[in-house]
Lab assay of single mutants.
Amino acid sequence: YKPCFVCQDKSSGYHYGVSACEGCKGFFRRSIQKNMIYTCHRDKNCVINKVTRNRCQYCRLQKCFEVGMSKESVRND
């Protein structure tokens, strides 16, 4: 598999339409299922990588959408 499109960590396969790691897969699923609203405490362009991905949930979710993750493919079960 290609590296995670969101944070470049080791991917566990294709999730919600893109190559993603377990961490970003779970983060995206929880964010969508719980209708989470995050805020960025900087200027909405935080670097998201394996080391920084937990620092800003707003920018991490934005990057999930930017790389093509589909909220329609998240099931509500």
Rank of each mutant, 00 (worst) to 15 (best):
Y1E: 08
Y1S: 09
Y1I: 10
K2E: 05
K2W: 05
K2G: 07
K2F: 05
K2N: 15
K2C: 07
P3W: 06
P3G: 11
P3D: 15
P3N: 15
C4A: 02
F5H: 04
F5V: 07
F5M: 07
V6I: 07
V6W: 01
C7N: 03
C7E: 00
Q8M: 12
Q8G: 12
D9T: 00
D9H: 03
D9W: 03
K10L: 12
K10Y: 14
K10Q: 15
K10F: 12
S11C: 04
S11M: 09
S11Q: 05
S11I: 05
S11R: 05
S11D: 11
S11L: 06
S12M: 08
S12A: 13
S12K: 06
S12H: 10
S12Q: 09
S12W: 08
S12F: 06
S12Y: 04
G13S: 09
G13Y: 06
G13M: 09
G13H: 05
G13A: 05
Y14W: 13
Y14F: 08
Y14H: 14
Y14C: 08
H15Y: 12
H15F: 08
H15C: 11
H15R: 06
Y16K: 05
Y16N: 09
Y16A: 09
Y16E: 15
Y16T: 09
G17L: 04
G17A: 05
G17N: 08
G17D: 06
V18H: 04
V18E: 04
V18W: 05
V18F: 08
V18K: 02
S19R: 08
S19Q: 12
A20H: 00
A20I: 12
A20P: 02
A20K: 00
C21G: 02
C21N: 03
C21D: 00
C21L: 02
C21F: 00
E22K: 06
E22C: 04
E22Y: 04
G23P: 13
G23V: 07
C24F: 03
C24S: 01
C24R: 01
C24T: 02
C24P: 00
K25Q: 14
K25L: 12
K25S: 14
K25D: 12
G26F: 06
G26S: 06
G26C: 08
G26N: 15
G26Y: 04
G26K: 04
F27T: 00
F27M: 04
F28E: 00
F28V: 02
R29E: 15
R29L: 12
R29V: 13
R29Y: 05
R29W: 11
R30A: 00
R30G: 02
S31Y: 03
S31P: 03
S31R: 03
S31W: 08
I32R: 02
I32F: 03
I32P: 00
Q33G: 09
Q33D: 11
Q33W: 08
Q33R: 10
K34C: 09
K34H: 07
K34F: 11
N35Y: 05
N35W: 04
N35R: 10
N35C: 12
M36K: 11
I37Y: 05
I37A: 12
I37F: 06
I37V: 12
Y38N: 05
Y38S: 04
Y38A: 03
Y38C: 00
Y38G: 03
Y38H: 04
T39A: 10
T39D: 13
T39V: 12
C40N: 00
C40Y: 03
C40T: 03
C40W: 03
H41Q: 12
H41K: 08
R42N: 14
R42K: 13
R42I: 08
R42W: 14
R42L: 14
R42G: 14
D43W: 07
D43V: 08
D43F: 10
D43S: 10
K44G: 12
K44H: 05
K44R: 11
K44F: 05
K44D: 09
N45W: 05
N45E: 12
N45C: 11
C46R: 02
C46Q: 00
C46T: 03
C46I: 02
C46F: 00
C46E: 04
C46P: 00
V47T: 13
V47Y: 14
V47M: 13
I48E: 05
I48R: 00
I48A: 03
I48L: 08
N49Q: 05
N49F: 04
N49S: 08
K50N: 12
K50C: 06
K50D: 15
K50I: 15
K50H: 13
V51M: 15
V51L: 15
T52C: 04
T52A: 13
T52K: 10
T52V: 10
T52I: 09
R53V: 15
R53D: 10
R53S: 14
N54T: 15
N54G: 11
N54D: 15
N54H: 13
R55T: 15
R55E: 15
R55M: 15
R55H: 15
R55K: 15
R55G: 15
C56M: 02
C56R: 00
C56W: 00
C56H: 03
Q57C: 13
Q57H: 13
Y58L: 03
Y58G: 07
Y58A: 14
Y58P: 00
C59Q: 00
C59H: 01
C59W: 01
C59Y: 01
R60W: 14
R60E: 03
R60G: 03
R60S: 03
R60K: 10
L61M: 10
L61P: 02
Q62L: 10
Q62H: 14
Q62F: 12
Q62R: 08
Q62S: 11
K63L: 05
K63R: 10
K63T: 08
K63H: 10
C64K: 01
C64I: 02
C64S: 04
C64A: 05
F65S: 05
F65E: 10
E66Y: 07
V67S: 09
V67M: 09
G68W: 01
G68P: 02
G68S: 03
G68Y: 00
M69R: 02
M69L: 06
M69T: 03
S70P: 05
S70M: 08
S70Q: 11
S70R: 09
S70I: 15
S70A: 09
S70N: 13
K71P: 07
K71N: 10
E72K: 06
E72Q: 07
E72L: 06
E72W: 05
E72H: 08
E72F: 05
S73I: 12
S73L: 13
V74N: 09
V74F: 09
V74S: 10
V74H: 07
V74D: 13
V74E: 10
R75H: 13
R75C: 15
R75T: 10
R75A: 14
N76I: 07
N76D: 11
D77I: 09
D77T: 05
D77Y: 12
